[in-house]
Nucleic acid binder design. Sequence first.
DNA 1: CTCAGTGTTCAGTG
DNA 2: TCACTGAACACTGA
Length: 280
Amino acid sequence: MPELPEVETVRRILERVLVGNKIVRAEIADDEIVLKRTPKVQVESALVHKTVTNVGRIGKYFWLELDSQPWVFAHLGMAGWVRELGASTIRLREHGNAPFEDENGNTRFLKMGLETDQGGRVVMTDGRRLARIWLCNQPMDDLAISKLSPDWLTNPMDAATVYARIAKKAAPMKAILLDQSLFAGVGNWIADEALYQARIRPNRLGKEMSLSDTEALIDNLVRIIQEAVDLGADSEKFPKSWLFHYRWGGSKGDELIGGREIQRDQIGGRTTAWVPAVQV
DNA sequence: CTCAGTGTTCAGTG
DNA sequence: TCACTGAACACTGA
């Protein structure tokens, strides 16, 4: 689920519910897997009685900025999400740290629950325990975040800059697109979608790209990200023409898109869906 | 029962 | 040291 548009959607939920308000209750899962870098009580005490001044994001990483440091950082992994709880939802404490079922009957792990002095409540959940929460004073003090490229929603690079960084690479473009130090926020589906719409083979090497190929890729990538963000990362609303709707259509996905064969290969360590008749 | 998965990290290779 | 690849992580659903 969570690539840049999904994480931006989560960021906006947190911004709407939390910014300007004081946190009156914070519950963090007592889960050493989730909190590899920080004991639960430290995260809770970093949050309680603090006012949220901003919610930041670069790529797939996001964080709560508070009126005193440290701040609280998080990554959704492969199956994390954040939702606002309505007034009728049962109390966070009653969930405890155990897995619980969401309104659709799916099992989730509760990672974090927050309540503000205005009564707003949000929870961060994860179906697979690959999401993470930790403390840090500011984004650039975090090793992983400090290595990210500028964010591709808010600060997209121009084609010439990208071209200079890929023109000698021997890796396939699919792998290059997944490199967060160059394409912060791009994940498996966005990479495939951008390559498909730019009509570039995922196994084309960086050094086989021209400047105009790079321009086409960047133009499509930026538009796809912007459109997905504008749609609140609600994939059902994505344009019908997008490969997204076909890549995992059924159990293995559809065989055809517009009458053309969809091929699936391992490229850059990930299953890659592409259309040989379109991508060269 | 086995395997892949909208991600990141780290060991291993050349 | 750099560039790159593949497995591990943890759990669910097909």
